[in-house]
Design a protein around this nucleic acid. Structure first.
Lengths: 194, 194
DNA sequence: GTCTATAGTGCGATAGAC
DNA sequence: GTCTATCGCACTATAGAC
């Protein structure tokens, strides 16, 4: 009998999402998740520093995707062009097939304030990493931080729309629209004519 | 002998900040904080829903300040003008005398990821509340959310600068500069001439 | 105000991979 | 043999229930 199998983290993540979705986050103990895949509570905490983290592993992939967009952009790109490039690159992680999974995961997160906090924290780490990368390309402060935060804001708004009921547009399509809206908003000198 | 004194929450907050700063956040138990002001652990948790919250009570004042700025703005104001008004109003909560206190509090928060998460969450709640208020003024989506998030971003960047070593400028002064930088950043069509 | 479940840690032992 | 994943147990603090 095998004592351990590969993909332990992944199996724990899948089991956790399933249990959280059906029984609720707080009603599901770490021990239950572990037992459901034949492991112990202690092993769960070896893979995930805390219970929430089981829902957020994989966010490093997103950071990498944003950074890949920056790396591929031309050297003379403006900060906002870099933001656009990062967003386009990140959108590849959200193909239409993943909408269902994203919706399920998000519904769990929305049901628990502690999970919302963790999500915000991850976005914040993403923004900080992006800011570092922009500074690394010679963009000064506070432009680098503002651009990085704008990128995550646009991403967040776009993601919310993407998983919205009845939404058909692709992630990249939505991102472009939202980014254009941000440009328009901040550039607007005259008020509305209403 | 008095059984309780007024300002219990305030005394717990002050004691907590002091203990966190000198002994570290994780090394300080809720029971210790309570005992240091002659109360029991149970009483601590009656005032604060969890241990972190003792550092974040008072953030409602900030939400109110942002909203007050919106209310005072003229009806035909553009979203970005409303953002500016909210920021000016919020700056009043950060007079120069408070810089020292803000620096100490922030140094504690920066030492602990859990506290950083809570801080992000509070900013997020602020952004959501601002977004509601903007929608209440007839600003459509996604402009309302983008403007609200931009406001908190500018606030965050400004606050970081405000508590920076050697910083002399007032909060409102910094906010105006950062907001101008955001306008410039997003409006910029041509690239740098370097 | 007491009692309790659960999150999360520390340490030693064990079982396999290499 | 080393290295790492897992287990098992004892333990504290948080946080909620009674």
């Amino acid at each position: 009998m095998v004592r351990w199998q590969p993909g332990t983290s992944g199996r724990l993540q899948a089991a956790a999402l399933e249990l959280f979705a059906s029984n609720g986050y707080e009603q599901t103990t770490a021990a239950e998740i572990a037992q459901s895949v034949g492991l112990t509570e202690r092993t769960f905490f070896r893979h995930f520093s805390d219970k929430r983290e089981v829902l957020f592993h994989g966010q490093e992939l997103m950071v990498d995707a944003f950074l890949a967009g920056l790396v591929a952009a031309p050297g003379e790109a403006t900060p906002m062009e870099l933001v656009a490039a990062a967003l386009e690159s990140a959108a590849e992680l959200f193909p239409d097939e993943r909408r269902g999974h994203s919706r399920l995961r998000q519904s769990v997160i929305e049901q628990n304030p502690a999970l919302q906090e963790r999500e915000r924290h991850k976005m914040s780490v993403l923004a900080a990493t992006l800011g570092d990368a922009l500074r690394g390309r010679g963009i000064p402060e506070p432009a680098a931080t503002l651009a990085a935060e704008s990128a995550t804001t646009v991403f967040g708004v776009s993601f919310t729309q993407w998983i919205g009921a009845g939404e058909q547009r692709s992630m990249v399509e939505i991102e472009r629209t939202v980014l254009a809206e941000l440009r328009n908003l901040t550039a607007a000198r005259p008020a509305a004519k209403a």
